[in-house]
Amino acid sequence: MTITLQEVLPTYFEESRRHQSEIWGKQLTFNKGEYIKIVAPSGSGKSSLTHFLYGLRNEYNGKLLYNGQDLHGYSVEDFARYRKDHVSIVFQDLRLFPEQSVRDNLELKRQLNPYHGPEKITEMAERLGIGSKLSVKSRICSYGEQQRVAIIRALLQPFDFLLLDEPFSHLDDNNSKKAMELMLEEAAARGAGILFADLERIDFFPWQRLYHL
């Protein structure tokens, strides 16, 4: 399982970005099981990259291949399968159902392609310190709590790659470390790769390759 970038550049970026970036306009292949760190200042296109990889947007030139297949050629049903079985994501803006409880939010993802049983929801929530929030509507939760819900949600399905878009922006170091540990365990269990995009280096992510966007 690989993700290949072939000279990908957002259509709304200037051509000069190709020369300044180690990712835009370059030929790159990420393999399953690899931990990739992408360091990027604000406005350099972190969210664009993760959204392109997740198939939410397609305003880019060049090609993005999953296992050799061009994402441009994917139908909406192909993307549904891709997101359900192969690629999971923690959005920067969290994207939870505000009126549903934390447990319902998690269950909605878990039932789609159950990698874990429902008891794992409680276990993970306890581990990240939001065990008591499971029956609370997600909009009542703090940003930090919501971010942990989004992280757990991404870990309830099978995946080959985990995409992280500033996953700790609302978390302190201690909670970030706990969450990272959980993600690493889950990725290892699946033999999956992690693409971690953030503003700066984070010491507790054991990256194998580092790129500046």
Binding site: R81, R83, D85
Partner: peptide, 15 residues
């Protein structure tokens, strides 16, 4: 918003 999020999570539009 809810339907879009479901599709984003990987729910099939056909289903």
């Amino acid at each position: 918003d809810n339907l879009q999020l479901l599709l984003m999570l990987g729910y099939s539009p056909n289903w």
